[in-house]
Each structure stands twice: as C-alpha cells, then as structure tokens.
C-alpha cells in the first residue's frame, strides 16, 4: 500500500494540472510559469549533482542546455516540419507524439557527450579549474552555434511550434505540460536512484575526501565522469524542453546568466539535497515572477539574498538534508527504509 503513495500522488498531480490547463482553470500565463518551473527543477537538481554532491564548481550548465536544445529542436524540425529546412518532412506529423521523448533523449545524449569532452581535460587539473573549463566550454558552445549558419547562427532557430501543433492535431491536450511533467519525474527518479546507490554514494565520498575514496577502491575518475555526464545530459533534456516550450531559441538564451540562475537555485536550496534543489527551483521561479515588475532590480535583490544566505546559513535552506530528514513523519508515510544517514 505504502509503495503506491508516491506514484498515486504523482499521477493525480499530473491529472490535476492537465485538467486545469484544458479547462482554462489556470490561464496561459500560469501554464507557462508551471512549465518553466519544471524546467528549472531539472536544471537545479541536475546541477546539484556536480555542485552539491560532488562539491565541484561547474559554471557552464547553460552550455549543456544549449546543446540539448539545439540537437532536439533541429532534429525535430528536420524530421517533422513541413517545408524548408533540409527538405523535410521525412516522417508524418502524428508520429511526433511518440517521437518526442526520443528527441529529448537525443538532445540529452548529445549534451552528455559534450559533458564527457569537457570533463576529460578537467581531471588532470585541480579543483578550481573545473570552474574555468566549464566557463570556457560554455563560451565555445555558444560561439560554435553562432557560427553555424544552418541552424540560424546568432539569429536563432525556430520552427518548434510546428511540432507542438502537430501533436495537438493528434489529440488536443497541453502536450508540453505533459512532457515537462514527465521529464521532471524522470529526472527526479534517475537522480534519486543514482545518489542512493552505493555507486552514487561514491560521489559523496569523492567530495569529502577524494584521496581516501581512491585508496578505498572507488574508481574516482569514473565516478566523476559518470556524474558529470549525467548532470549535463539532464541539462540537455531541460534545454530541449526549454526550446519547445518557448518555440524559439538563440545562442543568447544560454549565457552565463542562465548558468548563474541554475547555480542560485542549487545554493538557495542546499547543496546535495534533491528535495532542496527542487523546492528552491519552485521558489526561484515564483520569485522571478513576483519580482518581474522590478525588471533589472531583481538581479540585485536575488544575489543580495544569496550573499546574506551565505553569511548566515551557507549550507542553504536544506543543506545536504532531504525533506524526509527534516520531517521524519514523511519518511514513515512513504515507507522508505532508513538510508543510514
């Protein structure tokens, strides 16, 4: 019975959101806020793997997001969009309903491979250098996209709206809401399974004492590589969703500011805590909307908040603890075994 609680809650939440969107109980504005919230949850929890669990300082999350966004949208438009790009369509529009998750995964895979290329040189260098390497990589990615005319260069790339409308022709439901929701669930499950396994505990060991980890039989290079690839791959999926929700992307959407947003979410929530990272992504999205009238002022207030947080509660609101550690009742409700933590 208890095992069913999480799936049941998840499915009913999805049903509720979809029903509310279809009946216009939540208007278009709030629908898009919800979708960006989901994308932010993926960005935040995935970056948390590297910056929280592994204790490294990656500043280039937006770069991997860009790879995922471009790969999945270019693939989608090339395969399904009528007319124009690469002479398509090659596949009928109704297939988009089935192909969409594959397109997202393709974007995620491409981002993970990029992550591999970035992570390899950083292993030879010492701690702080991952910061530089990821910054440089995100500039290289952005600059590369700007120089590829076929995908629009600096002007950007569009046509994703055709794909989403092809899906609604099959069945008129808010598809993107569904996909974002599914991707969030997917991300949370993958990350939770990863960090709770002995394999994933190796990541915490690497953060706390890398030398001890290596000498106590942990293949530290592999752990770091896998974690970094997982993190960048999930960022790629978030990028793909971002592209289709927005319907238009350009290299300027994936600057250091975007990476900084992801970092702010991680550090607000507390490093190394999945629920912390997810909840702070929710809070951050809402905060950005609330502060929208302040325009540029919000980018003074948010950093100020983080500076104050670092002074008084540097480990973030959750700080390596999960929701279930803070409310033990919740753990009992969910029937989770003591993780020994």
């Amino acid at each position: 019975m208890r095992r069913c609680i999480v799936p049941l809650v998840t499915v009913s939440l999805l049903g509720l959101i979809l029903a509310a969107s279809v009946t216009d109980a939540i208007n278009f504005y709030w629908q898009s806020v919800l979708m960006f919230m989901g994308i932010n949850i993926i960005l935040s929890t995935s970056l948390n793997l590297v910056n929280g669990n592994m204790g490294e300082f990656s500043c280039g999350h937006a770069g991997f997001m860009a790879v995922g966004a471009y790969v999945s949208s270019v693939l989608a438009v090339a395969l399904f969009a009528p007319g124009g790009f690469l002479g398509g369509p090659y596949l009928p529009g109704y297939l988009t309903v089935f192909a969409f998750p594959l397109l997202l995964l393709a974007g995620g895979l491409a981002a993970a491979v990029t992550g591999l290329l970035v992570a390899l040189p950083s292993f030879k260098t010492r701690g702080d250098y991952l910061a530089i390497i990821t910054i440089a990589a995100s500039y290289i990615i952005k600059s590369t996209i700007e120089n590829v005319g076929a995908v629009g260069g600096a002007r950007g790339f569009m046509g994703m709206a055709k794909i989403t409308s092809a899906m609604t022709e099959v069945w008129n439901i808010p598809w993107m809401m569904l996909w974002v929701f599914a991707a969030v669930v997917f991300t949370l499950v993958v990350i939770r399974r990863y960090v709770s396994s002995t394999f994933g505990k190796g990541v915490d060991a690497v953060r706390q004492d890398e030398i001890a980890a290596e000498i106590m039989s942990v293949d530290t290079d592999r752990v770091k590589l896998v974690t970094f690839m997982l993190s960048s791959g999930l960022a790629g999926i978030a990028g793909g969703l971002f592209a289709f929700v927005l319907g238009y992307i350009n290299p300027g959407s994936f600057t250091i500011i975007k990476s900084t947003e992801a970092m702010v979410m991680v550090y607000l929530g507390g490093m190394g805590s999945i629920s912390g990272a997810a909840l702070s992504a929710v809070a951050f999205t809402l905060l950005m909307e609330v502060l929208r009238p302040m325009q540029v002022g919000k980018w003074v207030i948010i950093p100020m908040m983080l500076i104050l947080l670092m002074q008084f509660r540097p480990e973030g609101f959750f700080g390596h603890r999960e929701l279930t550690d803070i409310f033990p009742g919740l753990r009992r409700l969910l029937g989770r075994e003591e993780s020994g933590k």
Partner: peptide, 8 residues
C-alpha cells in the same frame, strides 16, 4: 555508508 562505499 563509509563501509558500503569502500566495497566499491
């Protein structure tokens, strides 16, 4: 967990 990880 210390003892688990060292069985990596």
């Amino acid at each position: 967990d210390n003892i688990r990880v060292s069985q990596y």
